[in-house]
Design a protein around this nucleic acid. Structure first.
Lengths: 339, 339
DNA sequence: AGCCGGATTGCGATCGTTTTCATAGGGAGT
DNA sequence: ACTCCCTATGAAAACGATCGCAATCCGGCT
């Protein structure tokens, strides 16, 4: 063992005066080790600054200690939407916490899909976290038929049976928002939706409808699509001001759109919240706290969501039993000044 | 070999009627293989859908086939600045292209630094790409003393000797922008800087000063710090309008700030570009094309930058000779309507 | 004293590659 | 025909961990 070579388990064992096997058992916290052995090995490990060789371990355990994180999202969104950065960050954190490598793949083109498929099928990772909210996402169909543990963020489009996922309670959050507006005494409440090829947007719309006690036909008169972008939110709000001149409250399905909606309201000379009360969704602090006025919003905790996804995935990877295939995370209303 | 087990090199060799060694040589494109062997093995590989086992390879080559991508940035920025998403995306793409796994680490707290240090020292990756623009970044000092190939994005703070980096020509770009404004006949040109603990911001300021032919003292009268945020850009612009009432052009050190600056100019009743010409920096399309009016900006190609960083790093990893330790990427001016 | 059984331990095989070294094969040169 | 050399190949030894199996130790019983 030269000075510069990293110590191996063999070195640790020698130093601790035990065999490789025993040292290994200590590292994997097996119960079948004597207290003395445990202590000796632990000491040796820290004295030598030993770190297990991932490759060697992976070779024999047939686990890579890495998971793929797949984002399927059209180009422009990734750049604009701060939600992504947040999710990526949460993923990096949560995976690092369990000492698993995160392999990030951004999948857009069919080329990317092919690459992702090859990579996943190649057994380079133990599992995958998939963020693919859109309708007919090819990535989902590709991933589905792979013999690989997968946990989805939110509901992917298509049949859900057999899929593992962690979703936010979009519908419940929308009900919360709408009820809040009603409780303020608002009579004419409208809704700016997200793109209706995303189930989160659809669920928020359902929540709105059910809290309002209206059906599809009635709801088209009270809603407009803002596409989850600031510009879209602005336009949708303007549209609604035209369709429903006497509106006095609006539930906007994302904070990004709400920022746009506020601009449109200001331009139309409406005061918030006096004339029109506004509730957003996401509780994206960087946005919600800096709008004029600060935005009341439904909080969905992405950090928690990702953390749960990771925990769930790791169970699947270790083939531990999971109680539920689908987890639903609660949402809460955060009051600021806009409603 | 059961149906479900992935084929090994042994299987490929058997099918091709050669030995493991020869098959391996084909996979690593060694020159010492006969054309027939090459063909037979290639065929066998594709028939079996063989994919080499990374762990086994890593074990013997002592290379992991993974590199770390480290971002050191205070929390809020990561969420707001679209530049990050772009860099991450470019990194994912460029690394996937060379079939290397990207391990993303976002490093903020001292805790994160410790974790990163442990991880990097643990030999879990072959090298690292480091994005750490700020002064006195602990991450840089940690990374520096590791015996690990590292390529920096832009100049890290501190002594540069021995460091490998790929930088954009910030100074040149700033000169380009300023000269352009001069060539439009503008007489009173001011500059909104980025945070002066980032060398990119400093370099852009130097470019401005040298194109204007002014010294430090003169420059403080003509500049204000916008901190690379939209809000900051707005405030800085307002400040400059106060300090230099007769200004007729402004070079803003980032598009994000330029968006803020435009708002401030509109509020002050200035027309762009008639009263005040504006040039941004980054050519961040999602911003520059949607401002009012569309923004003339200096393009720095982040995709290229990252691609070069990856190429450079891979050379270091393979211990190939590199001609220059430092690469400088050119910038160009993209004209739109603001100047 | 002899035997039994549970708790610890170590031996050695194993994972799937790369790589060194020795060998076989086959012109070319004498 | 014999050597010489160069090319293509294969046998086998790594790489550093995990884990099944057998061996050892020890106290407690008979």
């Amino acid at each position: 063992m030269s000075i510069h070579a990293r110590p191996t388990l063999e070195d640790v064992a020698a130093r601790a005066g035990v065999s490789r096997a025993t040292a290994s058992r200590v590292l994997n916290s097996s119960p079948r080790v004597s207290p003395e052995a445990l202590e000796a090995v632990t000491a040796a490990v820290s004295e030598l600054g030993y770190q297990p060789n991932r490759a060697a371990r992976a070779l024999v355990t047939r686990r890579t200690g890495a998971v793929a994180v797949l984002f399927s999202e059209p180009e422009p969104k990734i750049f604009d939407d701060p939600h992504f950065a947040r999710l990526i960050r949460a993923g990096a954190r949560a995976l690092a916490d369990v000492d698993v490598q995160m392999v990030l793949m951004l999948v857009h083109s069919p080329d990317d899909q092919a690459r992702a498929h090859r990579f996943l099928a190649g057994g380079h990772v133990d599992g995958a976290l998939v963020f693919a909210p859109h309708q007919n996402d090819q990535l989902v169909s590709v991933v589905k038929k792979l013999p690989l543990p997968v946990v989805y963020a939110g509901k992917p489009w298509g049949p859900l049976r057999g899929l593992h996922l962690v979703d936010n309670d979009n519908e419940g959050g929308a009900v919360l928002a709408t009820e809040h507006l009603k409780s303020l005494g608002r009579k004419k409440i409208v809704h700016v939706t997200g793109p209706l090829d995303e189930l989160s947007a659809i669920d928020r719309l359902s929540g709105f409808k059910s809290a309002m006690g209206i059906d599809d036909k009635a709801s088209t008169k009270l809603t407009a699509n803002g596409g989850f972008t600031t510009q879209g939110g602005r336009k949708a709000m303007a549209e609604l001001l035209g369709k429903v001149p006497d509106l006095d409250a609006v539930f906007v399905a994302s904070d990004l759109m709400a920022a746009g909606a506020l601009e449109a309201l200001h331009e139309a000379g409406k005061r918030v919240p006096e004339d029109v009360a506004v509730v957003g969704f996401d509780d994206h602090v960087a946005i919600a706290e800096h709008t004029e006025p600060p935005l009341t919003s439904v909080r969905q905790d992405s950090d928690q969501q990702v953390k749960h996804m990771v925990a769930h995935l790791m169970k699947l990877v270790r083939e531990e039993p999971v109680k539920t295939k689908r987890e639903m995370l609660p949402t809460i209303l955060v009051r600021r000044e806009s409603a």
